[in-house]
Nucleic acid binder design. Structure first.
Lengths: 250, 250
DNA sequence: CTAGTGCACTGGTCCGACCAGTAGGCTACG
DNA sequence: CGTAGCCTACTGGTCGGACCAGTGCACTAG
């Protein structure tokens, strides 16, 4: 050991330096949402680079959800308020590209939804209870209408629960994983011959969950929600993956 | 109502169309990690656009962690195996601007870690039990060495548990959220005057969790792991957010 | 005072060029 | 014949200039 420590040199592209600088300015708060960046032609003067380089940097910042550019805007790119959109996007990519099995996805939904219900039972407001109640009403009315409307109402219920948990990560992950699961099997559900019976059973289960949330019984709400989701999806999960799902049912 | 329904026209930038096409090819699996995209000059011919446009598209794809370009590479951009780097990046950004609170992050870790333990208690192999045991051994040896080594051993334990859960989503999210939490407060922990006492208590807690996992008692392992994490981090969470954490402790 | 028009500026796209890297084939030497 | 080293044909990174279609604002004509 000993001797001079040489660090490997990392060639940094010009546009990356620009990204770093603007990103730092935004995240440190010296550039607030709603403010405008200088125009591309002015940025290329400030950074002493060509416009192509400035634009590549702006594309990266835009992909990260930090800024937005509109053609014709007399001002420069707009600094956006922080939204979890980029997080949502990368989470979606992860779930799509990483060859996740339906079992894993459903299992993750069970975990998230149960936690959301557990928290919602303690933290929900009366307005959020009303939202959940209204969503179940929509589900009931939708049985005769069709699966799409039923599914939308079901989503509304789970969204209300997720919001009531007051944890944005739970909210986002719930949304992402749900949309992927639905994308994989919604047409199968919609075409099931006994789908009306499934819908009614699902409604009854949701009512039980809501009752537990209303009563403030978090563990019960969590257990019921896991069971609800298991019953609803287990038929579409390969038999080999079902034991892993049942492991969540205690 | 009635009459022809006109959809609002959405001007789509050329580079966005390119991003969509390549993204779709990667996520759908028709382009596998390790494969190469055509060179920029060839892409500009295939998409019938200029090289600038191709490059802006590639910058976006690179920001999303899907491809990587190296200058001088005789082949085109390389399709990358998925890494949670983009996920990590966007979550870090949100955490930096206080869009995600420490309380939410710790809460999410409690949810994930408890679920991982619950599943690991049922699904773990003997080799994985050995890994967890070895990690605790490292933790014990690290108390005298320093916090960094202790933390690394702690990470190894939780990683082993996450792997034993056999759910990649839990594994990845655990990893990302943990590193962000540690990035926020590791220096505070490292500088705590009573850190040695904290480490010993943490080791004892981990041993209890491992015993429950070994015994196959999932619910106990889950409860203990939540308590362990709560005890370890609660001191760094603002008092106003603590009730939300305690809501997970039943 | 208002309605309308034009201008100045924006971002989106294209083109052509040059540079610095890399890899692999080719050559010249041992 | 084998190998070390050069040379070339690519690659991506950057530059500068150009044109177009939008947008907002100031100015003008009613």
């Amino acid at each position: 050991m000993g001797g001079p420590r040489f660090e490997p040199v990392r060639t940094v592209r010009a546009y990356e330096r620009i990204v770093e600088q603007i990103e730092e300015a935004v995240e440190s708060g010296s550039l607030h949402p709603g403010e405008r960046l200088p125009s591309e032609r002015e940025l290329m003067a400030q950074f002493a680079v060509s416009r192509s380089t400035v634009r590549e940097a702006l594309r990266v910042l835009q992909a990260r959800g930090l800024v937005r550019s509109r053609p014709g805007d007399p001002n420069g790119a707009e600094v956006l308020p922080f939204t979890p959109a980029a997080l949502h996007k990368s989470m979606t990519t992860l779930a799509r590209v990483d060859e996740l099995s339906l079992g894993e996805l459903v299992q993750f939904r069970m975990v998230l939804d149960a936690s959301a219900n557990l928290l919602a039972a303690r933290l929900r407001t009366d307005e959020q209870l009303d939202e959940m109640d209204a969503a179940i009403g929509r589900m009931r009315a939708a049985v005769a209408v069709g699966y799409d409307e039923f599914s939308a109402a079901d989503v509304a219920f789970h969204d209300a629960v997720a919001r009531a948990s007051r944890n944005k990560l739970i909210e986002i992950c719930t949304d992402v994983v749900r949309s992927i699961v639905l994308g994989l099997i919604s047409e199968k559900i919609a075409g099931a011959p006994d789908r009306q019976a499934l819908m009614w059973r699902s409604i009854r289960h949701h009512e039980e969950v809501l009752a537990a949330v209303r009563a403030g019984d978090g563990p019960l709400a969590a257990r019921l929600s896991r069971q609800t989701m298991y019953d609803y999806y287990v038929g579409y999960v390969p038999a080999g993956e079902r034991p892993a799902l049942r492991a969540l049912l205690e």
